[in-house]
């Protein structure tokens, strides 16, 4: 399933809407990129919520205020389910009934479709409270399962508040003025190919809302140095998959990325990218924080907000 460049949104367009889903394969940098976007948004005066899912290192359901305009939510299914039931059923004092109820925990954790549905449901309900929500989606397969759940639910179970909400969610997430799907990939064969597959799946669910693409960790362009040293521009011709040294790696890496990005160029995707971030050990900031701040600077430099 292909899509032309005219209908794919630019990164700038994607970052202009109230709900931004940052998706992609594991390890591409979704968390850093989504946090950088959230920070940039909050600095531009928007009340912003960054959403992560099922982070075991933070308290479940925790909502944290990072600064004046920036909040972070660790969205977890059990807590979302309890809250959701409270909201939808409007039964006073429901909290204590569900709190730690083993059946609820079971359904939230393993109830087919429910687990994913309530996670998205929580995010969807929060849209009224913020100018902008940036979601760090779980890696490809799992993130997709969440969107599938909405489709599944409204297909199987009629009536009831969950059904109503799932239709509402389909409408919101399917509307390009309300929701942006940003697919992040590395300039590597697998992530690039998976990103196209992800695009196809998302288009099936949300045909009016095509995703946009972003390449992360693009290596500096040293093509002319590589060619000056007669390195074959076609990586498939290199005799071994390993380099000789870091200098040799530096030359080959940009040629590899150029070669890999052909996949996207053939699909007529305009390549928008973010480079590797430098990290300074002298800094009192943790590495991850430095990366996020670096990305945030670059997002601003590119005029994406």
């Amino acid at each position: 399933m292909s899509n032309s460049s005219q209908t794919r949104p630019s990164v700038k367009k994607l970052l202009s809407v109230p709900i931004i889903f940052v998706s992609g394969k594991g390890g591409v940098g979704k968390t850093a990129v989504s946090q950088a976007i959230a920070r940039a948004k909050s600095k531009s005066g928007k009340k912003t919520l960054w959403v992560g899912f099922e982070d075991p290192t933070r308290p479940p359901g925790e909502l944290r205020r990072v600064n004046k305009n920036l909040f972070e939510l660790n969205c977890t299914a059990e807590e979302a389910f309890e809250e959701y039931m409270g909201i939808k059923l409007k039964v006073p004092g429901l909290g204590h009934l569900f709190s730690k109820n083993p059946l609820i925990r079971f359904l939230a954790k393993a109830g087919p479709g429910i687990h994913e549905l309530v996670l998205l449901g929580k995010l969807w309900h929060e849209r009224r409270n913020y100018d902008c929500i940036v979601a760090d989606m779980p890696s490809t397969g799992f993130g997709l399962a969440m969107f599938h759940s909405i489709g599944n639910w409204s297909g199987i179970f009629r009536g009831g508040p969950l059904y109503q909400d799932s239709k509402g969610m389909l409408a919101t997430f399917g509307n390009p003025e309300e929701c942006g799907q940003l697919i992040v990939a590395l300039p590597e064969e697998m992530p690039l190919r998976e990103s196209l597959e992800l695009e196809a799946f998302l288009l099936q669910l949300f045909p009016e809302n095509p995703p946009g693409f972003l390449v992360n960790r693009l290596f500096p362009d040293v093509k002319k140095h590589a060619m000056a040293r007669n390195v074959d521009v076609n990586p498939d011709q290199w005799p071994t998959p390993m380099a000789e040294s870091i200098q040799d790696f530096a030359l080959r890496r940009c040629l590899l990325e150029e070669h890999n990005l052909k996949t996207w160029r053939e699909a007529q995707i305009t390549i928008e990218s973010l480079p590797w971030q430098r990290v300074y050990p002298e800094s009192e900031l943790k590495e991850f924080e430095q990366v996020v701040i670096g990305l945030e600077k670059q997002i601003a430099e590119r005029g994406w907000l």
């Binding site: 939808k88 059923l89 009934l97 059946l103 609820i104 087919p112 009629r158 009831g160 508040p161 969950l162």
Partner: peptide, 25 residues
């Protein structure tokens, strides 16, 4: 009675057919 209440509420929340399928499952 608390659990029965939870089940009743789940029925309301999930929509027609859910509890039936859930029980079968």
């Amino acid at each position: 009675s608390a659990m029965r209440k939870v089940l009743g509420l789940l029925e309301k929340l999930m929509g027609a057919g859910f509890m039936g399928y859930m029980m079968e499952f």
